[in-house]
Design a protein around this nucleic acid. Structure first.
Lengths: 200, 200
DNA sequence: GCATAAATTGAACGCTCATTCAATATTATA
DNA sequence: TATAATATTGAATGAGCGTTCAATTTATGC
C-alpha cells in the first residue's frame, strides 16, 4: 500500500551507496558520486534522505539486514526437518558465504561509527544479539545438547567466529588462510564437544 | 644524532591527529583542524607529511606501537623473574589497560582501511603476529605447558580476546559488560587448562 | 660571524562537499 | 479532466578540503 516509487528509489540509492563504498570506501563516497553513479541529481538523493547522516544510518540498517541472511538456508531447513545440524551451521559461518552477502570493508567502516553514535551502537548490538539467539535456537533442537546452557555456548561460539573474521581479514594467502580457518573451526568444534561430553 | 626538532614536531603532529580523531573521528579530522589544534599552519604539517595518506600511514604506525605496549609491564617481569604467569597476562588483556593505551574508535577506523590498502593490511598483520609471538614466549616459560603447541594455544587465546574486544565494545552497561568479560575470560582459562591437563 | 640548511609562516589555488531552492514533470486522487 | 501530491531537475550556495608556493625566521656548521 505504501508509496512504491519512493521505496524503490530509496533501495536503489542505498544500493548505490553500498556499491560505491565497496569500491572506494565509505569515507570517499559522496552524495554527488552516488548521484552520478545512479544517473540522478544529488538533490533527488537528499529528497529521500534529508542529511548524509540519515543516509548512512539507512546504509547500516541495510548491512545489518544482510548479515542476518546467513541464517536464510538454515531457517528453511529448520522448518522442513525441525532440526539443523550445529556443525553444518558452524561450517557455514566459516565459509565464504558471509562475504558474498556483505563486504568486510564497508562493514568495519560502519562498525567504527558505533564509538561516536549511540544509536548505531545499539543497532549493532541488537543485531549481534539476534545472531546469538538464532544460534541458540539451533542448538536447542540438538538432543545431545539438551538441558545445557546453550545461551552461553552460543556466546562462546560467536566470540570465536567474530575474532576469526577480524583476524583472518589480514591474510590474503589462501593456503595460510585455510590453515587458520581450520584451527578456529576446530576451536568451535571443541566447544560443542565439551558441552556434548558433559552430558554423558 | 638525527634531527631533533623535526622528530619532535612529527610526534606532536601525529599526537594531535590522534587526539582529534579520538574526539571527532578519523574521517572528520582534517589537516587544517590539526593545525588549528596545535597552533600551526597546515603548510607546516604538509612540510613534515607531504600528503594526507602519509599522515594516516604514520598515525597507524603510532597506533600499532601503542598496542604492543600492553606487554611493557610483562616484559620487565620476564626479565627479573624469567617467568610471567599466563593467567595474569590474560587478566591484563581483558582489563581496561588496553583502552588506556588506545582508543577503540580510532583503532577500528584505521583497521577498516586494510581492505583497500595492502601496506596497511600487512602492517596490521605483522602487529598481530607479534602479539601472538610474545604470548607464545610467555607460555613457553610455563612448565605446565612444556612440550605443548604453544603457538596454536596463543592463536586460540588471541582469537577469543579479539572477538571479545569487538563484541564487548557494543555494551555500555558496566554490569552486563563485566558479566560478559567473565564469560570470555573463563573461555580462555578453559583453553589454558585443557592444554595443562593433557600434560598429566 | 657568515653561509647554508632547516623550520615556519600566511596567502592562495582549484575542487568537492553537503545542502538549498525554485521550477518543472509526473503520477494519484476526486 | 481538474486538482493536489509526489517525483525530479538543475543551478547555486558557502564552507572546508588537501595542497602549493614564495617569503621569512630560526638554527646549524665552519
Amino acid at each position: 500500500m505504501s508509496n512504491k516509487i519512493s521505496d524503490e528509489r530509496k533501495k536503489e540509492i542505498i544500493g548505490g551507496f553500498y556499491e560505491l563504498s565497496k569500491q572506494n570506501g565509505l569515507e570517499n563516497t559522496s552524495i554527488a558520486k552516488i548521484g552520478k553513479h545512479l544517473g540522478m541529481p544529488p538533490s533527488l538523493i537528499m529528497h529521500y534522505f534529508p542529511t548524509r547522516e540519515i543516509l548512512i544510518s539507512n546504509l547500516i540498517s541495510f548491512i545489518l539486514e544482510q548479515m542476518l541472511m546467513i541464517y536464510q538456508p538454515m531457517l528453511e531447513e529448520l522448518e522442513i526437518q525441525n532440526y539443523a545440524d550445529p556443525h553444518t551451521f558452524v561450517d557455514r559461518l566459516f565459509s565464504r558465504d558471509w562475504n558474498l552477502l556483505l563486504d568486510d570493508g564497508v562493514f568495519y567502516s560502519c562498525f567504527s561509527l558505533i564509538f561516536r553514535n549511540k544509536r548505531i551502537k545499539d543497532e549493532y548490538r541488537v543485531l549481534h544479539e539476534k545472531l546469538r539467539e538464532n544460534l541458540k535456537a539451533i542448538l536447542d533442537r540438538d538432543e545431545t545438547l539438551h538441558g545445557k546452557d546453550t545461551e552461553l555456548l552460543a556466546e562462546q561460539i560467536f566470540v570465536v567466529v567474530e575474532g576469526a573474521y577480524y583476524y583472518l581479514s589480514m591474510f590474503d594467502d589462501p593456503e595460510v588462510y585455510e590453515e587458520k580457518v581450520t584451527i578456529f573451526k576446530n576451536q568451535v568444534y571443541d566447544l560443542l564437544r565439551k558441552y556434548e561430553v558433559q552430558h554423558l
